[in-house]
Amino acid sequence: MSISEMLLKAFNTDPKSYQEATSREDASKWITAMYDEIKLHMENGTWELVDLPEGRKAIKCKWVYTIKADGCYKAWLVAKGFSQQYGIDYEETFCPVARWESICFLLAHAALENWEIKSLDVKTAFLYGKLDEEIYMEQPEGFMKKGMGAKVCRLRKAIYSLKQASCTWYYKINQSLTKLGFVCTKSDAGIYVYHQRQGEVIVILYVDDILNIGPELKELTRIKEMLSKEY
């Protein structure tokens, strides 16, 4: 089999629907992946089941599946954010990220000064953002609570594909960095600087990807450990 055929096969193996995922030979693995995702939401307090208020409409959701490079089966529950109504389900959606020029400059500076660099990837980052809006979502396919089929999910925290998901995550990580003593630069909303007796650290924030840069490895490790406790 050629490389192109292998790649084509790899891209075509992921199920496109709940019905397909639960009817394949590897259905047990997909079901386990979905249970893991639901468990994560339950532990996170993403939603609570309530009656849909009169005059309100619940947005739909769907399952998205993929087999990662390491062979791990992963299922994500995503909202159909395109059905959200502006002014009712969302308002602010903008999420600032570090400018490419800032990233290049800081990495070049770190190389020139022989500084240390630590990378962080916050898993399920969007699920940490708390929602101010009153948003209702249909129960996940295949995981409807027995005897509570008429109930809907009142979202307390953001979920993938909500229009404001990335924005709420930015507010959350901004609060965390500020609490640790970081100051956001005026020239770039994705760059945070930390100047304390313990040392100097610069954080580059690009959605859920974080780079810690500084002269002292010990201080970078300390900041990384503190963020890991919260996320």
Results as ranks from 00 to 15, higher is better:
L49Y: 07
W63N: 01
G45H: 11
G142M: 08
T22D: 03
M42S: 13
W30H: 00
C184L: 11
R222C: 10
W169K: 00
V193L: 07
S187Y: 14
P215L: 00
V64W: 04
V50D: 05
L49N: 07
L220V: 14
L127G: 01
E92F: 04
V97Q: 03
A111E: 06
L127P: 02
E54P: 03
L77M: 07
W63R: 00
I191V: 15
A33R: 06
M226I: 07
C104T: 08
Q85Y: 00
S119I: 08
Q84D: 01
L127T: 01
W100E: 09
I159P: 00
E219V: 13
I191N: 00
N212G: 09
Y171V: 11
M1W: 08
Y65S: 00
K39S: 13
K229G: 07
Y35N: 06
C167G: 02
Y170V: 05
S83M: 14
C167M: 13
P215K: 02
R56K: 15
A111D: 05
L131T: 07
C104D: 06
L120F: 00
E48R: 04
Y160Q: 05
L211Q: 08
Y128S: 04
C167Q: 13
L127C: 05
T124F: 06
E200C: 04
S119M: 14
L52M: 08
M1L: 13
S17E: 06
A58W: 10
A189F: 14
I191C: 03
L7G: 00
E54H: 05
Y73A: 05
T22C: 06
A165G: 10
Y18F: 14
E116H: 11
F11C: 01
C153A: 12
L52Q: 05
A75T: 10
C72F: 11
A75S: 09
V207D: 08
A111R: 05
I117E: 02
Q175N: 13
